[in-house]
């Protein structure tokens, strides 16, 4: 079957697609800003000796890790504003859902990174008379971060993939803009091919970076 590919119609709407890509990256950035600090706090909570804190973090991480992202996004968009009375737009709902779920993933990554540092390092730090906080930042964290970095980049590319689900609540990111362009140009084949290609370029580059970092920083034992 001969199909005449015609990208010109779609390329005339390139502005919409670029806006979509920017919105995708924007949502990704906000997700990271939520997920990294929260993930770190959760990781510390998972390592805590205090039972209450541990179990709270465990329940939180398990719940968000095992939830379907789309379900979370829809819940935060439709149910969350009604419960809290807050005004939550599609961007905020998607950012919250993505941020919380990825904080749960990152909590396990950070926890594994921290526990990968040999016990003796803690003991040596103690023997040098360091208090817990300087001991953590000066001795443990610099060693823990090495195996974590490539995983972080991987999580980043997973987040970008995840942002495409925000299209379901009409947040104007790349996939959503793609569906708009497809329906206005009647060229779904060309439009979705371009959209897929745009995602591919961004995510592929990130994954290449991740495997480069993995080689440079040594084989890591931490997994998402």
């Amino acid at each position: 079957m001969a199909y005449d590919w015609d990208f010109s119609v779609v390329l005339r709407s390139n502005e919409l697609l670029w806006k979509g890509l920017v919105a995708t990256l924007n949502l990704t950035a906000v997700t990271i800003a939520i997920a990294v600090p929260l993930g770190f706090i959760l990781a510390l909570a998972l390592l805590s000796n205090i039972r209450m804190i541990y179990w709270f973090a465990r329940a939180f991480v398990d719940f968000f890790r095992t939830s379907a992202l789309l379900v979370l996004i829809i819940w935060f968009y439709f149910a969350f504003p009604m419960i809290t009375g807050l005004r939550v737009g599609s961007f905020e709902a998607a950012a919250l859902a993505l941020g919380l779920q990825n904080s749960a993933y990152l909590a396990e990554v950070f926890r594994a990174g921290i526990t990968s540092v040999a016990r003796g390092q803690w003991e040596a730090g103690r023997a040098l008379g360091l208090h817990l906080i300087p001991l953590f930042w000066l001795i443990i964290a610099p060693q823990a971060i090495r195996p974590i970095i490539p995983v972080l980049v991987n999580v980043l590319s997973e987040i970008i993939k995840g942002t495409s689900l925000a299209a379901a609540i009409a947040y104007a990111e790349l996939a959503f803009q793609g569906s708009m362009v497809a329906s206005t140009t009647y060229r779904p084949l060309e439009t979705y091919t371009i959209v897929a290609a745009l995602y591919f370029v961004v995510i592929f580059l990130l994954n290449q970076l991740a495997s480069y970092l993995e080689r440079r920083l040594g084989r890591n034992e931490v997994r998402a």
Binding site: S164, P188, Y199, F200
Partner: peptide
């Protein structure tokens, strides 16, 4: 692995039929 499954689904549902007829 380097594209979102959402986009793959959209591609297969909306774009592939154009090629397949």
């Amino acid at each position: 692995r380097n594209t979102p499954s959402m986009v793959q689904l959209l591609w297969i549902y909306y774009a592939l039929p154009v090629l397949l007829g």
